[in-house]
Design a protein around this nucleic acid. Structure first.
Length: 746
DNA sequence: AAATACATAATTTTT
DNA sequence: TTATGTATTT
């Protein structure tokens, strides 16, 4: 029984209905949090299909694979969907690149390099360029390359516009990096967007073909697309400009990754006839929550004001909880959750805890375990990032792509085969001018005179072994891994030893299970698909909703989700907003949007907390409540002081509201380390301020480097750095950590 | 070449 | 606190 259009339109508000019914021509939906965006999207697709549009003419782009799966499920509940593409931009890119591989002069079996691979490759490119004496880190250079790629800039054009020293260094590295990628038959994350974008630009025939194939394009979380992604969307919507983008500028939280809010302006410029529909009414949160979020985001100046309103109840006030320290915070939050569940009002799955940084999960983890409260930390890839699993995956990658030198280097001596750094240098020197992969070079190791005895035979044996494993790539994934573990000696390496190895072995076994399940779900999926799936997975993709447990995740991972009760922990200056954002107003505004995203996840109850003392990199510092707490309205917000010092309620927000008025940048000046850690008496606090005792011009004595003069002091608190000129050269230290004695004050 | 001890540096967010 | 690199020994 095919559902009638009424079916999709029931219970929709007028703007929602407009959005669903607008099928032809460009459409921009500005959807505030909780405005029923998902419903509109699914109904709109269902409506399209109902009107006779073939599912395979529709392309829907989501932000995570999980969101893609969810959307598919929801639409399928209404209509059959065979042939419709729903994926992330990156998965879409891979699919196009594999499909049109020959045409784009690509090997279909390319490996996808993640950011860790990228870092290592940049490092080796740096070495190849012989620029190891510069102070730029591989990561900063990798970041610059990534940014260039996001802006569709290839090495030659980048070199052309490189003016300052840094850009010029990057330009050189970028070119070598690209060559290395090509030689390894690998693409990095950015290439998965860059290549399709350029293909659409340069190959008119291909562009027209894909444009006609995907006559209806839908893009969710549009505020977080970058230039390359926009180029793809644009290229697919010229002959058939039925493109619908959905986003909320106030929820843009990936500027640091290249997302560009200007894409919204460009959309209206490139599609002047575009219809714009605003979904403002919130159906998710209580009035109290929404008002608090609204008041917060109103502090952003780079923003078009937009009303948030709801017909929902006022509900409980938003709570700001003050704790003595991070340990207390974790324990008491978990306890509050447990109490609510014990009282029978809630399930564990109703609760989410949001954090700005992953590193903050530690205290929570032990609190959950101690109080026996079920929880899951949503950090999807952690399992595959374990050394043993990465090793096994590297073996698989090398089997599938023998040119993958990075993987070769990872496993060539794992288990030990008597092949050390020097031998590998000889091997590289042999391989490079001959344009051989390291694996190919290894197979003819006897021709390399510089490599002797054990190393030489080890290399040849390795190449031989990989060749023998080759036919197994067609076996089932789990069988392949099992064989691989036996024949490479990896299992033997782990089998003989201590408990740590036992655990590693167990992890590898779990990897086999994962591969097995992956294959069982869909027998057509290969080991290559398995690897691809792991690389392109997002953090939330590992989130299991079916469990009745508390979810812990970063604010970034929380995007798009909702929970009856949300806790946002560590709302402290330096953490939220993060210290790395404090230098620029626009970065602070992004942090504020991040807080806004977190707050608007909550349906019924919202709790924000901070602690007076925060353990940080092994030492305890005084914390300053987040400036964002001071931006909340007094109405509908309740402040509760649960700290031992109990200085009375409401100090939190007064801190920011009233005259204290410290500049944002100065929070870490109050960060006074306590020694020894965890001591909380005021006496100890008072006398130790090592970070501030050094000044420029001082002469100091260092245990190792001898006497030197301080030439620069920067940063604050635990991050305070001092630069010292010794006879042997200049060196930088963390002020707190350096073992120095003052010889002469200036 | 590999194992070990030792020092020291670094820590946002992620497809 | 943890990961990474360096120097030293076997």
């Amino acid at each position: 029984m095919p559902p009638t259009p009424d079916h999709f339109l029931q219970n929709l508000t007028e703007p929602q209905r407009d959005a669903v019914l607008h099928t032809e021509g460009p459409l921009l939906i500005l959807a505030g949090p909780g405005s029923g965006k998902t419903r509109v999207i699914t109904c709109r697709v269902a409506n399209l299909i109902h009107q006779g549009v073939k599912p395979y003419r529709i392309l829907a782009i989501t932000f995570t694979n999980k969101a893609a799966g969810e959307m598919r499920k929801r639409i399928e509940a209404m209509l059959p969907l065979r042939g419709m593409w729903i994926s992330t931009f990156h998965s879409f890119g891979v699919r196009i690149l594999r499909q049109y591989a020959e045409r784009l002069n690509l090997d279909r079996n390319f490996t996808i390099y993640d950011q860790a691979d990228r870092s290592r490759l940049v490092k080796s490119a740096l070495e190849a360029c012989k620029i190891d004496n510069v102070r730029f880190t591989p990561d900063s250079i990798a970041g610059a390359i990534s940014k260039a790629k996001n802006q569709l800039m290839l090495p030659d054009r980048y070199a052309g516009q490189a003016k300052d020293f840094f850009s010029q260094v990057v330009a050189g590295v970028y070119e070598v990096y690209e060559k290395k990628l090509r030689a390894a038959n690998a693409l990095d994350f950015d290439d998965l967007l860059l290549w399709p974008a350029l293909a659409l630009k340069n190959d008119a025939e291909l562009r027209a073909e894909l444009d006609a194939r995907f006559q209806y394009v839908l893009i969710d979380e549009y505020q977080d697309t970058n230039k390359a992604q926009y180029a793809i969307a644009r290229g697919l919507s010229i002959d058939y400009p039925n493109i619908c983008v959905v986003g909320d500028p106030d929820q843009s939280i990936y500027k640091w990754r290249g997302s560009d809010i200007r894409n919204i302006l460009d959309f209206e410029r490139d599609f002047p006839q575009a219809r714009v529909i605003t979904l403002g009414e919130n159906f998710r949160s209580t009035k109290a929550i929404l008002q608090a979020a609204d008041a917060l985001i109103a502090n952003n100046t780079q923003r078009k004001p937009k009303p948030l309103f709801t017909a929902n109840n006022t509900g409980e006030p938003v709570r700001v909880l003050q704790f003595e320290n991070g340990l207390d915070e974790a324990e008491q939050v978990v306890q509050r959750i447990r109490t609510a569940v014990d009282d029978g009002n809630r399930h564990y799955r109703d609760f989410a805890i949001f954090l700005r940084v992953n590193a903050l999960t530690r205290n929570l983890e032990s609190a959950f375990i101690r109080q026996r409260v079920p929880f899951q930390i949503v950090r999807g890839l952690a399992f595959f990032e374990r050394k043993e699993n990465k090793d096994v995956l590297a073996y698989l990658r090398l089997l599938l792509n023998p040119h993958d030198d990075l993987s070769f280097l990872r496993i060539i001596n794992e288990p030990a085969r008597g092949i050390g750094k020097v031998s590998l240098e000889h091997l590289t020197n042999y391989a490079e001018p001959r344009e051989l992969s390291l694996l190919a070079a290894a197979s003819e190791a006897e021709k390399i005179s510089a490599i002797k005895g054990k190393a030489s035979s080890g290399l040849r044996a390795f190449a031989q072994m990989m060749a023998e494993l080759q036919p197994l790539v067609d076996a089932t994934p789990d069988e392949l891994i099992r064989q691989l573990l036996d024949r490479t000696g990896y299992r033997k390496m782990l089998a003989e030893n201590d408990e740590e190895d036992q655990e590693r072995l167990a992890n590898v076994e779990e990897l086999i299970t994962a591969a097995h399940q992956f294959h069982e779900e869909d027998r057509t999926r290969t080991i290559g698909d398995f690897l691809e799936n792991i690389t392109l997975a997002s953090d939330v993709d590992g989130w299991d909703e079916s469990q009745d447990c508390v979810s812990v995740m970063t604010l970034h991972a929380a995007k798009g989700l909702e929970f009856p009760v949300a806790y946002m922990l560590a709302c402290e200056q330096g953490l939220l907003p993060h210290e790395r954002s404090l230098m620029k107003d626009e970065d602070v505004e992004e942090e504020r949007r991040l807080a806004f995203v977190g707050m608007t996840r909550a349906k019924e109850e919202l709790n924000l907390s901070w602690a007076r003392l925060r353990e940080f990199r092994g030492q305890t510092l005084y914390a300053v409540p987040s400036m964002f707490l001071g931006e909340l309205p007094e109405d509908g917000v309740e402040t509760i002081d649960l700290s031992a010092s109990g200085a009375g309620a409401s100090r939190t927000m007064d801190f920011w509201r009233n005259g204290l008025e410290r500049t944002r940048k100065s929070w870490y000046d109050t960060g006074i380390p306590l020694t020894p850690a965890r001591t909380q008496t005021k006496a100890v606090v008072a006398d130790a301020v090592p970070s501030r005792k050094y000044t420029e011009g001082m002469v100091v004595e260092h245990e190792v480097h001898g006497r030197g003069r301080i030439i620069e002091v920067s940063g604050h608190g635990a991050l305070r750095k001092i630069k010292i000129r010794f006879r042997s050269g200049e060196r930088a230290f963390i002020a707190d950590k350096a073992k120095l004695t003052v010889v002469e004050k200036k």
